[in-house]
C-alpha cells in the first residue's frame, strides 16, 4: 500500500502536493492532457524523483528510507518505451533484475500472449510486442522477488502501457492487469491516454492538469463530459447505455 501525504515536486516539472492511498488489488488510472505531469507523477510514485514536499510511504515506511534493492521487491516501474540497446532474447530480458523461476516466466509469457516469442531477440519484435515484454518484465520483478512476509503483490507502475497496442491487445492487457491485481493483490497504477480504457477497466481515476490533481474518484464521476471537454479543450459526446454501465466518451465530429 502506497500512501501520499501532501507529496509534491517543486522543481519544474512540478507536481502540486496531493494526498492519496493506492491499495492492494486496485487498478488506478492517471489521466490528463499532454504535459499534465502524468509521467512525472509516476516517477515520484516510484521514488525515482523523490518528493520535494510532503512524503510517500510504502507499507508504512517512507520511500527514501527503503534500501534500493529491497524496494525493488515491492514496486516495479515500466517506463515509456525505451529501445534496449542490445540484442536480448525475450525470456532473458524478462529475467533481468530478478531471478525468476522458469515456471513464472512461462506463465507471464503466456499471460501476455508472448510464448511464441520467448526465444526471439527483442530488437526484432514489433513495438507492441516489445511493450508487452517490458510489462511482463515488471510483473516478473514483483512476483519473483516479493518478500515472503508481504501480504500483497506490491506496486506495479505502468507509463502508457497500451500506447503501441492494437485494440484486441489493449483489451487483453487491461483484462490481464485486472487479473493480476485480483490474483496477486497487486496495486497497479497506469498512466493512460485513452479515457475509455480508464473508464472501462480502472477502479479509480486521478485526473491531472498542469501538475495538479484536479479530480479523483470513480471513473464515471471523474470522466464526465463537462470537465473533460474543458480540460482537454475538446468537443465530446457521451455514449451512454453501454451494457456494463460505464460512461464512454467520443469526439464530436
Amino acid at each position: 500500500m502506497l500512501t501520499l501525504h501532501q507529496a509534491g515536486l517543486t522543481a519544474v516539472p512540478a507536481i502540486a502536493p496531493l494526498d492519496g492511498t493506492i491499495r492492494p488489488g486496485e487498478l488506478l488510472a492517471i489521466v490528463g492532457p499532454n504535459g499534465a505531469g502524468k509521467s512525472t507523477l509516476l516517477s515520484m510514485l516510484s521514488g525515482f524523483r523523490p518528493a520535494e514536499q510532503g512524503e510517500l510511504r510504502l507499507d508504512g515506511t517512507p520511500l527514501p528510507d527503503w534500501p534500493i534493492a529491497e524496494l525493488a521487491n515491492r514496486r516495479a516501474l515500466v517506463a515509456q518505451q525505451e529501445l534496449p540497446g542490445f540484442d536480448w532474447q525475450t525470456d532473458e530480458l524478462l529475467s533481468l533484475g530478478s531471478n525468476p523461476a522458469k515456471s513464472l516466466v512461462a506463465a507471464l509469457l503466456d499471460d501476455l500472449d508472448l510464448t511464441h516469442l520467448a526465444k526471439r531477440s527483442v530488437l526484432s519484435l514489433s513495438g507492441g510486442e516489445r511493450q508487452r515484454v517490458m510489462i511482463a518484465r515488471g510483473a516478473c520483478q514483483l512476483l519473483s522477488r516479493g518478500s515472503p512476509t508481504a501480504k500483497d503483490g506490491g506496486l506495479l507502475l505502468l507509463d502508457e502501457p497500451t500506447s503501441a497496442l492494437d485494440i484486441g491487445q489493449q483489451q487483453r492487457l487491461m483484462r490481464q492487469l485486472r487479473a493480476w491485481a485480483e490474483q496477486h493483490r497487486m496495486a497497479i497504477v497506469c498512466v493512460l491516454h485513452d479515457l475509455n480504457l480508464a473508464s472501462t477497466y480502472a477502479d479509480r481515476v486521478w485526473l491531472l492538469h498542469q501538475g495538479q490533481r484536479i479530480d479523483h474518484g470513480l471513473p464515471n464521476q471523474v470522466l464526465n463530459p463537462a470537465t473533460i471537454a474543458k480540460i482537454y479543450a475538446a468537443e465530446l459526446q457521451l455514449l451512454e447505455g453501454s451494457s456494463h454501465g460505464k460512461h464512454l466518451l467520443a469526439l464530436a465530429p
Partner: peptide, 9 residues
C-alpha cells in the same frame, strides 16, 4: 532497462 526502470528494479 533504462535508467528509471532500472532504478525501480
Amino acid at each position: 532497462l533504462g535508467e528509471s526502470t532500472a532504478h525501480a528494479a
